[in-house]
Amino acid sequence: MTRSLIPAILAMAAIVVASNILVQFLFGQWLTWGAFTYPLAFLVTDLTNRFRGAAAARRVVLAGFATGIVCSLIGTQIQGEFGPLVTLRIALGSGLAFLVAQMLDVTVFDRMRHARGWWQAPLISTLVGSSLDTLIFFGTAFSAALVWLEPSNDVSWANEILPLLGAGPEAPLWLSLAVADWSIKLLLALVALLPFRIIVRRMTADVA
């Protein structure tokens, strides 16, 4: 079982590492390049769940979680312009968001495994997981309400009151970042249905 999961584990680890690197590079005003790679983790989880079951998918998630911890530990040792690239709050938010959201994705997908539409399980599980992921990460990493998690970490910049996404009602900056990130996750959840369908068809045809 474990050996058969090696491709999925390697894919998950690659996505986590790439996302941790690309999150350092801005894409426009509200996003980083990591926003475009991280959602692929849900595709890996769902494909594993589809072919190997929920227990196997959880093993792949735990492997990704372990990889994320290593990336966070490395990031805390690298000094950027304003301090460590990875603060305690970012590390906590990232790890907690990944683990909780991915495990929820596994559970939702498994319960919808026999849904009439082939797209329902991967789409709904990813949408639910992605939404929780965004809420946990940005809330934990930047919300002023959780400043007690790391008092020495100045997150006042993330709580500056600005128009939401530059045009909406006034809100803390981190909410704009969260909404932009969440929007990309939703878009990629739809896009990911295509490779999900193609891979499932090919794998099913090979077995037949």
Rank of each mutant, 00 (worst) to 15 (best):
V155I: 15
V155D: 12
S156D: 07
S156L: 11
S156I: 01
W157N: 09
W157M: 15
A158H: 11
A158N: 14
A158W: 08
N159L: 02
N159I: 09
N159P: 04
N159G: 05
N159H: 11
N159K: 11
E160Y: 11
E160H: 13
E160R: 07
E160N: 11
E160Q: 14
E160T: 15
E160M: 10
I161Y: 10
I161W: 07
I161M: 14
L162A: 14
L162K: 10
L162M: 15
L162E: 15
L162H: 06
L164N: 02
L164H: 08
L164C: 00
L165C: 06
L165P: 14
L165H: 03
L165D: 04
L165K: 08
L165Q: 07
G166I: 01
G166N: 04
A167R: 09
A167G: 13
A167L: 15
G168Q: 06
G168M: 08
P169Y: 06
P169M: 03
P169T: 04
P169K: 00
E170R: 14
E170H: 12
A171W: 03
A171F: 07
A171T: 03
A171I: 01
A171Q: 09
P172M: 10
P172Y: 02
P172S: 02
P172Q: 08
P172E: 06
P172F: 09
P172D: 03
W174S: 01
W174V: 05
W174K: 05
W174F: 13
W174I: 01
W174H: 03
W174E: 00
L175V: 15
L175G: 04
L175F: 06
L175E: 03
L175D: 01
S176D: 00
S176Q: 00
S176H: 04
L177Q: 13
L177C: 01
L177M: 08
L177W: 15
A178P: 13
A178E: 02
A178T: 01
A178W: 09
A178K: 08
A178Q: 04
A178I: 05
A178G: 09
A178D: 00
V179C: 10
V179G: 05
A180Q: 07
A180K: 01
A180F: 08
A180M: 08
A180P: 08
A180D: 12
D181Y: 07
D181K: 02
D181G: 02
W182V: 12
W182M: 13
W182A: 14
W182I: 01
W182D: 05
W182P: 12
W182N: 06
S183Q: 05
S183H: 01
S183A: 15
I184P: 11
I184T: 09
I184F: 12
K185I: 03
K185M: 06
K185N: 11
K185V: 01
K185G: 04
K185C: 03
L186W: 13
L186E: 05
L186K: 04
L186R: 12
L186V: 15
L186C: 15
L187H: 07
L187S: 12
L187M: 15
L188C: 11
L188S: 00
L188P: 14
L188W: 06
L188V: 09
A189H: 07
A189V: 09
A189G: 14
A189T: 02
A189I: 11
A189L: 13
A189C: 14
A189W: 07
A189K: 10
A189E: 05
L190T: 06
L190H: 04
